[in-house]
Amino acid sequence: MTLLLARRFGQMLLIMAFASLILFMIFDTEEFKKKIAVAELGGFAVSALSDQDYQEWLAAKGLDKPFYQRYFTWIGDIFRGDFGHSFEKNTAVGPLIADRLWNTAILAFWVFALMIPIALVTGVLAGMSEGSAMDRSLSFVSVFTTSIPEIATAILLTVFLALGLGWLPAKAAMTQGFDPWQLVLPVLTLVLYGFGYIARMTRASMAEVMTSNYIRTAVLKGLPYRQVILGHALRNALIAPFTVIVLQLNWLLSGVVVVEVFFEYDGFGKLLLEAALFGDIYVVQAATLIAVVVACTSQIISDVGYTFLNPRIRFA
């Protein structure tokens, strides 16, 4: 097990090193450097700049060195806890990312706190009696909500709950300090889109368990139906959804971009998009590293958790 974990972590580090090297290469082009110059000095100033002045500006920003040299300095700095400097926001990247990541973590916490119970209950209810009217209607609801993309869900919720009924604020910019009401629409959007997938996984897993022999035995020996479901079926039916739930962390980092941009919530996704559009390489780098860490860790947790929960795999 330790060997497996060490191998997976080694692979993760390799992927991170590879991914960040590619990013440094991508953002090394003349156009990107020019873009940063234009954004900082203004287009007119850049076109008026002499070549020598431009080179001096690049040197002042540390952009004159070749990318591999910058790459190794950057890696060295990371080990000292320095993630570089944001060109756009003119602050250190570390605290900036930490701040935005915290905002996204609040959002993610509420999404998971709502989504997991709803999805599991729906999935178990639907899978309990496959083919029944309840199963069909719940399955249809989950296909339906998953089919509506996040951007459309965000629009529908905003139009009806915020603009039409006026119950909730339409934006989540949090200009006057933290306001939990502003968080409701983004969280609802992500929950509505995300719960269907877990619910369908739970349903499939539950339906499979319900056809197994030991459930038939439990029913035949006269146990109350409640006890068969809660005591016998659920334990095995929830193994597969567990792995899917952990992997949803990865989905959240993608899905959050649209939702944060639409609701103007200052989180990780919005920061990433702004940084990528600006060519703010150190922010993009740090954000990508975090994204890769989250993706790989969730994968490892999901795999390890699966082996722990399922003895058939553990002892195989």
Binding site: M12, I15, I26, S254, A291, V292
Partner: peptide
């Protein structure tokens, strides 16, 4: 494939299209 799969999809899209 693993390198690309370990990026969240949106990050990959944003970086590629931006480039």
């Amino acid at each position: 494939a693993n390198v690309f799969l370990s990026f969240p999809v949106m990050v990959l899209f944003i970086v590629i299209l931006n480039y």
